[in-house]
Design a binder for these strands. Structure first.
Lengths: 156, 156
DNA sequence: CTTAATCCGTTGTGTTTTGGAACTGACTCG
DNA sequence: CGAGTCAGTTCCAAAACACAACGGATTAAG
């Protein structure tokens, strides 16, 4: 019986625009953006190096860096006057994307289709494996925590 | 002086292909993919509902779901025989993307350009704020942990 | 029985975004 | 001078995208 219990559907669009995930993806969800951010997090700050390491086409990277700068994620620092040259650095907002990168990398380690890669070592020496815990109750955050009644979703 | 200390640059491409972040982005980095995954994590499993909530064009969503199914992130379950109808569910791989979604949403809450949104409540009741800690040493993971000597990056 | 509506797509048609490669320009080094 | 570096820009073909319309299968309403 393909007939659902009829949910209010006027606000179909409301959820989309007022969602932090969609909002984040609007700023960093385009191709190459997160990879460029990864490079800067690694400590790579020069245009040519970023293109080289990410594989991003130069013109695309130009665009991405420009828009990331516009979003306050990247800061453009001039390091040479007379051939005007710039370095790209993460702002505080950019640095706070690192958990996203780490989460992606952990997932990629486990489920990516490429050969198994050695993961980063944490500063403690052990291979980094991140636990996600609630700041308040210190319990691990599980997938079901994303499935809340919040935002007026009828239970399906 | 725009002159770097000359680094070996033959393996410029090596890093890109052998990176778990890039690998993950190849599978879920396209537009609408993560939003569709978000919906399934929320418990929304039907085509029309997913298009409605995400705003993704139908044909694009068809593509995305197909490719996510091919990557083993989404499972297509038939729930009606004679008008053949399907539901889309996350696999284990898909469910493990939830930390990525949560990290993105936390970032979006703080830095997204839209109006401040109320965040999810955790199951403990408090507004969810996630701590990222090393599974071994239980220390918080900080941005600098991503900047390692690993992967043969010369210090810049 | 006829008409409308739901649900899940597919097709068709333009627009936008990409990717790749070549080109510019201002230097630097030997 | 000639080769090399660095950071872009420009050009163009190819791919991805958005929108709207169409379709078949079925159930609900009048």
């Amino acid at each position: 019986m393909p007939r659902s219990p009829k949910t209010a559907d006027q606000d179909v669009v409301k959820r989309r625009v007022s969602c932090s995930i969609a909002g984040a993806l609007e700023l960093v969800g385009e191709r190459w953006s997160l990879l460029a951010i990864r490079e800067m997090a690694y400590g790579v700050h020069r245009f040519d190096q970023i293109t080289g390491y990410t594989g991003a086409p130069r013109n695309i990277l130009t665009d991405r860096l420009k828009s990331l700068e516009g979003s306050g994620i990247v800061e453009r620092r001039q390091y040479s006057e007379r051939p005007p040259r710039f370095e790209y650095h993460l702002t505080a907002a950019g640095r706070e994307l690192v958990p996203v990168l780490i989460a992606l990398s952990q997932w990629g380690d486990r489920w990516g289709h490429d050969e198994p890669i050695e993961s980063f070592p944490h500063s403690c020496g052990a291979p980094l494996q991140v636990d996600h815990t609630c700041h308040h109750c210190h319990q691990p955050v599980v997938p079901e925590d994303l499935k809340p009644q919040a935002m007026g979703i009828a239970a399906h």
